Simulated scan of single mutants.
Amino acid sequence: MQKNIIDLHMHSAHSDDGEFTPTELVKMCAESGLKYFALTDHNSTKGTAEAYQAAQQYGLTLISGIEIDCVHEGTHLHVLGYGVDPNYPAFAKIEADILKQEQQKSVQRVGLVEKLGIYINHDKLNKLSKHGVIIGEMIAEASIYEPENKDHPLTMPYLAGGKRSNNPYVNFHWDFCAPGKPAHVAINYISLNEAIKYIVESGGIPVLAHPGNNIHESEKLLVSILAQGVKGIEVYSSYHSEEQIQFYLSQAQQRGCLITCGSDFHGKTKPSIKLGDCRCSKETEQTLIQKLAPYYFKK
């Protein structure tokens, strides 16, 4: 499959689960053949200035971005903001609030995984921790390959050849630490309405990220989300099946939504995801590049 020249969903080390610095990430974008990209760190715009400087060096076009955790009708959503002002004060406040909660809940998260009988290498875990935060992907990295878990039925699916080995760290997170799972620890996220308000006030456009992961194919929930002011849908996602792509493409076309694409590249937490693997047609890609022109980042 030919890679796209635009990728609107990726994370740097300013996300707890991102591996590379913004500069390293931009260099990788250039090497992957990308021409347009958006840096969309979790609840953070701190990497924008560095990414822009690197983009200038490599001749790439940056769309400033953010991926905000929020809640609507009891569902945890991720909303992407494109063209946002990285210095908008609310973003720093959201990031600081979530960081404080994550720091407070990390020990509890680790304890719940250990309660399942999974051994965790705490020395390794402490080295992986960022700012005192321990997320599910870090727990996975400090446990699934440890000899103490050899032949453990709960960790075997993440080893090479196992049914969850394609993205072992994030799959571990989804299987054990996500909402409804045995090691889930609740974080109080802002509402969808608040997330939209902040994105719009900062000059951006709100887009629903990888809906197949969050709302699956619930047309009722999708309509409710769009009614709050979300203007686009990440139709082409590395997570979506062909059936999901067709479902969300049809919904976006019917409702006049911006159709976007993104790999959700993180690095080691999602090793099967590559930069530029956005799966959209060249025609869709060119249309998107034109529509996003007002949101290209300029200092």
Rank of each mutant, 00 (worst) to 15 (best):
G81W: 09
G83F: 04
V84N: 06
D85R: 07
D85G: 09
P86L: 12
Y88P: 07
Y88K: 11
Y88G: 07
P89E: 09
P89R: 06
A90I: 09
A90F: 06
A90H: 11
A90G: 02
F91H: 08
K93V: 14
I94N: 01
I94P: 02
A96S: 14
D97P: 03
D97Q: 12
I98F: 12
K100M: 07
E102L: 13
Q103K: 14
Q103W: 00
Q103M: 11
K105L: 08
V107M: 07
V107D: 10
Q108R: 12
Q108E: 15
R109D: 01
V110D: 00
V110N: 01
V110K: 14
G111N: 14
G111A: 14
V113C: 03
E114N: 10
K115E: 11
G117P: 05
Y119K: 08
Y119W: 14
I120G: 08
N121M: 05
H122I: 05
H122L: 08
D123K: 14
K124A: 09
L125R: 07
N126A: 14
K127E: 12
K127G: 01
K130C: 02
K130G: 00
K130E: 04
H131S: 13
G132S: 03
G132H: 01
G132Q: 01
V133Y: 00
G136Y: 01
M138F: 11
M138T: 10
A140S: 15
A140V: 12
A142S: 14
S143A: 15
I144N: 02
E146K: 03
E146C: 12
E148K: 15
N149Y: 04
H152I: 07
H152S: 05
H152A: 03
P153M: 05
L154Q: 12
M156Y: 03
M156C: 05
Y158A: 02
L159A: 06
L159E: 01
G161I: 02
G162L: 01
G162Y: 02
K163E: 12
K163P: 01
S165Y: 02
P168V: 10
N171Q: 12
N171G: 08
N171L: 06
D175E: 05
F176E: 02
A178K: 08
P179S: 09
K181I: 06
A183F: 02
A183C: 07
V185G: 03
I187P: 00
I187M: 11
Y189H: 15
I190C: 06
L192W: 06
E194P: 03
E194N: 13
A195Q: 10
I196Q: 04
I196E: 03
K197N: 14
Y198S: 02
S202A: 15
G203E: 08
G203I: 04
G204M: 06
I205E: 01
P206D: 06
P206F: 02
L208N: 12
H210P: 13
